[in-house]
Design a protein around this nucleic acid. Sequence first.
DNA 1: TCAATATGTCGTTGTACGACGACTTATGAA
DNA 2: TTCATAAGTCGTCGTACAACGACATATTGA
Lengths: 100, 100
Amino acid sequence: MRLRTPSDIGALIRERRRALGLDQRTLALRVGVSRQWIVEAEGGKRGAPVGLVLRTLETLGVGLRAGEDAAPAPGGRTVGAAVDIDGILAAHRRKGVAKR
Amino acid sequence: MRLRTPSDIGALIRERRRALGLDQRTLALRVGVSRQWIVEAEGGKRGAPVGLVLRTLETLGVGLRAGEDAAPAPGGRTVGAAVDIDGILAAHRRKGVAKR
DNA sequence: TCAATATGTCGTTGTACGACGACTTATGAA
DNA sequence: TTCATAAGTCGTCGTACAACGACATATTGA
């Protein structure tokens, strides 16, 4: 499963929680958060602290792995990110210049 | 790379940012956060919102994948997490869940 | 029917977070 | 040396968040 948004993570949490037969209250107890937090996390709350999210996933027995990604930024305003090789090389070459 | 804590994510961000030859200011600009936020995120700030973290990673061209994990909860107070088959089965039996 | 459970939602409150600005240190170039 | 950039840190402030408690719906079972 590929995770791009908080909603993805929320769906993952819900899916795994149900697969394990846990209710929200029990999961909340184990993770050490409030039940409401679980509700909102599953709903894809954008502001959920990454620390709690990681704890939750770990409690559910789900591991997160990072993979270099050849094709970034597919669907977002997220950025003009991509990799901008020119900028990178320029910065590397001259190290300092770039001038903003 | 396996991500377990905010520190792991911070290290990942720093590593990828440097690999791409970006400075904190530029990355912050692209992600849409303050430079200070990048500093703290790289330092493994516990509270960083998962939404921003995901945006950052995506900007860096890093994808996150979830994998079911056979061996959970290695080093944390994190819990008696694991899977607790008994509880699961009990819950399932009681409800005739199947429902899913 | 009523009772219990699971989930979602609504207020309230204290706290932590993120943005902004400025300062400091370190490194490298002119 | 001086100057510019990069990175880290501090203080302030407004806002978002997580916890708590309570209530509203299903849904299921007695």
